[in-house]
Amino acid sequence: MSRLELYSPEGLRVDGRRWNELRRFECRTNTHPHAADGSAYVQQGNSKILCLVKGPMEHGANLAAGTKLDANGPVLSITINYPPFAANDRKKRQKNDRRLQEISIILKRCFMKTIVLKNYSRTVIDISLTVLAMDGGLLACFCNAITLALIDAGISLYDYVSAISIGLFDQTPLLDMNTLEESDLSFVTIGVVGDSDKLNLMLCEDKIPLDKLERLISLGIEGCHRVKQLMDHQMRVAGQELQERQ
């Protein structure tokens, strides 16, 4: 097997990007106006995610029987649909895949701090995520898609949550990893609230020397802010269109 050059001496990555460049980020909201209260489609490079939000409502279809409604805020239920055709290796995932379960818990806890809880007491917000194609940055794409879909559903948020993955190649941090890079390099995913430096979620599953962490985080925060701007821009365009139609 020929070893891929993930980061050439000239400073180019496998897909021709520089170290601090995002992949093409495209997003649309209100893609499924009849099927859900809020919907969003996010494309980061070749990763494509669809997110549908139903709610706030009094009863959730996907809620486990006996789940108590909370007087202090909504109950979020996040289901992840990761069909076998989405990734490179056609692998059927079990229904209770541990990794996806973990990701859904992380996302749930992340958005419980971002949604203005007091507006939604004793309600259910049902979020379903579908992976259409996966080429790296699973958690980051999920996070961005949920933010947009929640905004589309008109659910009050304190601010955007934007997330991005950052990898480490030797000494160089690489922004927004694709599958090829993810399989060979360690990476962290971070999620940032709005334009602040505050991390809402952070996930790192591989070994990273501690002294490199700071650089990864600072590049990640920069990347998150850029993603936030792109999302914000798209939302404003969508809002403008709505206004003109009226």
Partner: peptide, 11 residues
């Protein structure tokens, strides 16, 4: 490292 949501903490 995992920080699963919760309070937002400065880097």
């Amino acid at each position: 490292l995992v920080k699963s949501g919760g309070l937002n903490i400065d880097a």
